[in-house]
Design a protein around this nucleic acid. Structure first.
Lengths: 242, 242
DNA sequence: CGAAGGATTGATCACGATCAATCGCGGTGG
DNA sequence: CCACCGCGATTGATCGTGATCAATCCTTCG
């Protein structure tokens, strides 16, 4: 059903031992809860890694040996069925944490959608840190809790919303997440392809495209390949329902 | 779209101050991680409550003032859209914890499907306990992590599986969760109605009914109102795919 | 025995999938 | 410089799965 890019990761380590101090996403990440001593401990096991578009941060079925904190770019979390059908369970952007499912093996793949930078933590050393810093543990629980709520929203969308509602809701959620990072009000970057959106929304690429065209004709959203401009947020919210 | 029972909860407190010691679900619940001192602390703020079928443990939009641990029966977690469409984001059975989404307000309603007993914790006192017992915090994170993985499975089912696959997968997941509680191999109690199943699987009641009839004609599963007998698990697993 | 509510089955409809053709843009080589 | 290529996106025509509308059936309970 879907073609996967097979480019290898360009894991260019930049050896950022004290980089946490000036990390751009620290205030919005799990690290925000830590004092400077704890931050130092975390720094010592963090490593900045870059990924080319299409390369994998983690692969479904592999042993879970690393956790990540995304600092730049967009990551898609994908699950693939035996026959190749693909479902994107979510997108991660700057500040988002990857690895909350603390099982022994990854239950999904995470791939860079565009150029991605992320902070890598060795799993065993991270778990050791968790035992000493309940702050961090508590922060992780809040993050997991939040992601659970988001995923439940997604279940509602896929189970009970129409194609139009899903696309409208998706654009709004992208906008709101960007805004939380200080993005603009009405211009939302679309790092992912239409196929990615379709695989996220449980639709086909044609339906996504048609829906975006319909939104454009109605002067609600104008989207090109790379970004969507929201012209009438009220109407978009009305379309998205809930 | 769906009718809701409005029966009030029969909150029959049985004042179980030291009941945690002999609790049936302790070994499989979040409480399993605690030593006897910690268990005592937890006991002192636990309260056993019974719910009649259809009554609500928590209501979408209400302030989140309590957390629950289900000890008997089946609970459905439902989200309702403004126009009345309903999605059941999951079912809870004995041992399952309700309240992992630690936000200020409940993001879904939880209703007793059949006769339910659950252990109630005051939210503020529970949070205080969390600050003192990292064991418990860690256990909660694992539970949240597990529930996140289950919810992602659900997203894949709703986004990319056919009606037949969803029904087959649902019956198998019910079976597997029952088995983890020591249930039988092939006889799965169905506490919920066909409408509940439909609202969980993103289908209509007619489609669920037709699919079950098809499974019966193929001698794979025989289901009546209250239970399903799995006759050919291999074939059912093949149908469910993944 | 009759009423009520959940479940099943049948007939038809429609939303989104599928199949197929074309567009448009960015990159590359002649 | 532009002709060509490749790939993602768009648009059109048709199909099919599951929704909708409707009529029993079955079980439970008064």
């Amino acid at each position: 059903m879907t073609v996967f890019p097979s480019a290898a990761a360009t894991c260019g380590h930049t050896g950022a031992l004290t980089a946490c101090q000036q990390c751009k996403v620290r205030s919005i990440s799990i690290c925000a809860a830590l004092n400077s001593e704890e931050l130092g401990a975390l720094s010592s096991l963090a490593r900045d890694v870059s990924f080319a578009p299409g390369s994998a941060l983690v692969t479904q079925g592999d042993p879970a040996i690393a956790l990540w904190n995304v600092t730049e770019g967009t990551v898609r979390m994908t699950r693939v069925l035996p026959d190749g059908r693909r479902q994107i369970v979510g997108f991660l952007i700057a500040g988002d944490f990857l690895g909350l499912s603390l099982s022994t093996h990854y239950t999904f793949s995470a791939e860079a959608v565009d150029a991605v930078r992320a902070c890598r933590f060795d799993r065993h050393r991270f778990e050791a840190l968790l035992r000493n810093y309940p702050h961090l543990l508590r922060r992780l629980l809040d993050a997991a809790s939040h992601e659970l709520a988001l995923t439940q929203d997604h279940v509602v969308a896929l189970g009970r919303q129409t194609a139009d509602e899903r696309v409208a809701g998706f654009l709004l959620s992208l906008r709101n997440r960007r805004r939380a990072l200080g993005g603009t009000d009405d211009l939302v970057p679309l790092a992912m392809t239409r196929q990615d959106m379709a695989d996220h929304l449980g639709l086909t690429i044609e339906t996504v495209s048609r829906t975006l065209s319909k939104l454009a004709r109605a002067h609600i959203v104008k989207a090109d390949r790379a970004e969507a401009r929201i012209l009438d947020r009220r109407q978009l919210e009305a379309l998205a329902d809930h």
